[in-house]
């Protein structure tokens, strides 16, 4: 009778380590701080979002360095994963913040977009696609532990074509995937497919992120919205 107990202890210990490291590494949300002196317009909304995205990216690069195993990858592979997965990470964070809302996207605590604001900013279609993800995770009751794991998995699984050491990246994916499976076995034993269901949401995240990148690339080409260097650099990495 000692064996199952031991096994439970082992599973909990392993799962807790990765999940708790990710929970601790989770960045605080940052504020959009739209300029109150500028009248509302599509350009103002997009300028606010691009500035927010740039600052979020700085924070998320710091976060990636706390994913267990990520810093042991070569610098080139760390860069490649971030260049592929950055928009998925940004969107997943917006989605998680929006889970308590009804048809609104919480880009930041002080920047919540409803349908009308989305239309004004020319983001109606993109925001609707993001809301589809919100709906999916709402119906599943996505937990914070699952969110931090999925975000790390999205990064490790970002399918960059430039990876030097694909075995090391595979090991990182295995550690994170294993942590998700262990978490679900311990916390959702009633649904043995929950880990798989969560993984199956990732194609929609990839598709939505690709759409967002495309949209912001055309905004960049249009040249009317100022963009900071890191955001520009990562948009260019996607072209």
């Amino acid at each position: 009778s000692g064996l199952p107990q031991k096994k439970t202890f082992f599973v909990d210990a392993v799962e807790n380590k990765v999940v708790s490291l990710l929970l601790v590494a989770e960045p605080e949300s940052i504020f959009a701080m739209p300029d109150p002196t500028v009248p509302e317009s599509d350009i103002k909304a997009l300028t606010t979002l691009c500035d927010l995205a740039d600052r979020e990216l700085v924070v998320n690069i710091g976060w990636a360095k706390h994913i267990p195993g990520f810093p042991t990858l070569s610098l080139a592979d760390q860069m490649s994963l971030l260049q592929s997965g950055w928009m998925e990470i940004l969107i997943l964070r917006v989605v998680f913040r929006s889970l308590t809302m009804e048809d609104k996207l919480v880009y930041a605590e002080d920047y919540i977009m409803d349908e009308e604001q989305s239309k004004l900013a020319g983001l109606f279609d993109l925001n609707n696609a993001i809301l589809q993800l919100v709906k999916k995770y709402k119906s599943m009751g996505l937990e914070k532990e699952e969110f931090v794991l999925l975000k790390a998995i999205a990064l490790a699984n970002s399918d960059s074509m430039q990876i030097e050491d694909s075995e090391a990246v595979q090991r990182l994916q295995d550690v994170l995937h294993g942590a998700l499976q262990d978490y679900e076995a311990a916390h959702h034993p009633e649904d043995c497919r929950r880990a798989g269901k969560l993984i199956m949401t990732l194609p929609l995240l990839r598709q939505t992120a690709a759409r967002a990148v495309q949209h912001f690339c055309s905004i960049k080409q249009d040249g009317r919205v100022p963009m900071h260097k890191l955001f520009l650099e990562l948009l260019e990495a996607k072209v």
């Binding site: 924070v59 690069i61 610098l75 860069m79 971030l82 260049q83 260097k229 890191l230 260019e236 990495a237």
Partner: peptide
């Protein structure tokens, strides 16, 4: 790699993010 200077800098900097 030269094209991705800021990402490179941010990843290398182990303490605080570089001042952008």
């Amino acid at each position: 790699k030269e094209k991705h200077k800021i990402l490179h800098q941010l990843l290398q900097n182990s303490t605080s993010p570089v001042d952008l």
